[in-house]
């Protein structure tokens, strides 16, 4: 069954989604503000109205541009359209998820968030991989599997949409922390403690925003973190290494070449946790490190001196 698929965004992720869909025999149109060269089987368009003819739309823009992209999309979509986004960030101090932005800016309601250890090149080339789709709509999962699944991509699903989005965004921050620690020579056991306690920390905050703890421990959280540690060259890892080598945050971002939202997300998350009186020692210490309020040695010492409790 051939689907009409629209892709918004011509970055690595958008192109990979378009390639995978075209490979599975679907009719694909990719929208971008600028005209671009695309592989065979994908129609390029700079007119957003062309996306309006699609049944399933993939929103593949960084969270930073989600508001502008959805405003554009909102002009041509209605209740018939199903939308899946693949953004990994949260927006603003209110920690809005991209799903919330789609709901505010468009009238689409059948929305899903695709996340997990899904790498753009693996998806584009059809190498075996897995992902998690957060959605309350079973029909959307079926369609996503039709569009991208085939024999190469296992798409699991969960109704905990906000959990998938928060896990995906906050794990990006833990990736920066782990890369930093690795670069300054932390032992494997130190990395393990940072990763597991970091997961507990972000999931504790996530639960106050409506997420389920189990989602953080699944593909969207732990699964994604393992993939990054195993070396899939995430920009978050590159940022962590650059910071450890002494670069200032703005310079480190420049080196990476992509805007990594992880540190902004961590700052907003910290503010939220402070208001609720939640303990977030790893995030607080690392944010202080990036703002030069504490030295790396003192950071480790401060974390090690904390009272130890039950797991």
């Amino acid at each position: 069954m051939s689907l009409r698929i629209g892709v918004v965004g011509a970055g690595g992720c958008g192109r990979a989604v378009a390639q995978a869909s075209a490979r599975h025999g679907h009719e694909v149109v990719l929208w971008s503000r600028k005209d671009r060269e695309l592989p065979d089987g994908i129609r390029m368009s700079t007119d957003i109205a062309d996306i309006g003819d699609s049944e399933l739309i993939f929103l593949a823009v960084p969270a930073l541009h989600a508001v502008a992209a959805t405003e554009e999309l909102g002009k041509v979509v209605d209740g018939r359209h199903l939308i899946i986004h693949v953004s990994r960030g949260l927006i603003g101090a209110e920690l809005k998820t991209v799903t919330q932005i789609i709901r505010e800016k468009t009238v689409c309601r059948r929305i899903g968030a695709l996340a997990g250890p899904l790498a753009a090149d693996a998806l584009a080339e059809g190498r075996p991989s897995g992902a998690i789709l957060g959605t309350g709509f079973p029909e959307l999962t079926e369609m996503a599997r039709d569009a991208l699944g085939g024999g190469e991509l296992r798409i699991y699903d969960t109704p905990d949409v906000v959990g998938v989005e928060l896990a995906s965004a906050t794990v990006g921050f833990l990736m920066v922390v782990l890369a930093y620690a690795q670069e300054i020579g932390a032992e494997p056991s130190t990395l393990a403690v940072l990763a597991t306690r970091g997961m507990v920390e972000v999931s504790r905050v996530g639960q106050t925003l409506g997420a389920k703890e189990s989602t953080f421990m699944g593909l969207a959280g732990l699964g994604d973190l393992i993939a990054a540690v195993a070396g899939d060259q995430r920009p978050e890892f590159q940022l962590g290494r650059a910071l450890a080598q002494g670069a200032k945050l703005s310079n480190a971002r420049g080196k990476v070449g992509a805007y990594v939202e992880a540190i902004d997300v961590a700052r907003h998350l910290l503010e939220h946790a402070r208001r609720l009186g939640l303990e977030t020692p790893i995030s607080a210490t690392f944010v202080a490190l990036t703002e030069d309020r504490i030295s790396p040695d003192n950071a480790i010492q401060a974390l090690m001196e904390r009272r130890v409790g039950k797991e």
């Binding site: 209740g79 018939r80 959605t135 079973p138």
Partner: peptide, 30 residues
Amino acid sequence: SLTPNGREIDSGGYIERRGKPVTDPARDGA
């Protein structure tokens, strides 16, 4: 039914699947 910028839409679209209106308790639950 209206979009946030005042465009009129058909609310029946929400219960369509591949162009046909269908009942679906799981969808309606969501």
